[in-house]
Simulated assay, not measured.
Amino acid sequence: MKDTPPAIREGSGACVPVSTKVNQLFAAFHLRGCDEEADADVAAAVGRTLGRPVLDREITELRTGRPEQSPAPDLLAALSEHFCVRDTHLTGGEDVDNRPVGQTLRLMVSIRDLGPAAYRL
């Protein structure tokens, strides 16, 4: 179906849409009190990695789960590289050590959002 976002399975066996995983990356990789990276900035960085233009619309479509066609594996791999996660997190390939990346990202966000005051000794 054209409206069904591409999805992959996570460690629990639950089907997690690529859009959810991409949005987790955007949410996790920015400093506390700062905005997420803009789709246009990520598209430019991913385009430099790929050596070809990537439109901000392509990134937006990945985030909304409504790409016009299935995302190219090289685009997903470059997006993973931009956010410093294994490309298997987005492409659905087998991860060597089966790390639950989604859980790790949620933990990172929680720690970041608590701030240093939560760790006073």
Rank of each mutant, 00 (worst) to 15 (best):
P53H: 09
G102D: 14
E61Q: 15
E94H: 14
V18C: 00
D41M: 07
R120L: 14
D41W: 04
G13T: 06
P6A: 02
L114Y: 10
A43I: 12
P5I: 04
R99Q: 12
G51F: 12
F83V: 00
R120M: 11
Y119V: 14
L121E: 14
A40I: 07
G47R: 02
E61N: 14
N98R: 14
V42D: 05
S70M: 10
Q69W: 11
G51D: 04
T88N: 07
A27P: 01
S80T: 08
S110W: 01
P100L: 10
A27K: 09
L50D: 05
A117M: 07
R9I: 14
P5C: 06
L105A: 05
D87E: 12
A38E: 00
A7C: 12
D97Y: 03
H89Y: 15
E81N: 11
P73K: 11
A14T: 13
V54N: 01
A40N: 07
R99E: 12
I8G: 03
V101T: 09
G115F: 06
A38N: 09
G13R: 08
D113E: 15
S19P: 03
I8D: 02
R120S: 03
L121R: 07
V96N: 03
A118K: 01
V54L: 08
C34P: 09
P5H: 12
V22D: 09
L107Q: 04
R120I: 12
I8Q: 05
D95R: 08
E94N: 05
R9W: 09
G33M: 01
G13K: 04
G51E: 07
E94T: 13
L25R: 05
P5V: 10
F29H: 13
V42W: 07
G47E: 07
R63Y: 08
D95Q: 06
V16N: 02
T88V: 14
H89C: 00
R48E: 13
V18Q: 04
K2V: 13
C84F: 08
E94K: 09
G115W: 08
I59K: 06
A117C: 01
E37R: 09
L105M: 00
G11V: 00
L55P: 06
P73C: 12
E68L: 11
V85E: 11
F26Q: 10
I111Q: 04
R52W: 10
M1P: 13
S70K: 15
L75A: 01
A72C: 02
E37K: 08
D35W: 01
A14G: 05
V96I: 12
V46Q: 11
A38D: 11
V42I: 02
R63L: 06
G65S: 08
G13L: 09
R120T: 11
T91H: 07
A117Y: 09
P17M: 09
T49Q: 13
R57Q: 13
E81S: 12
S19F: 03
L90G: 04
F26H: 08
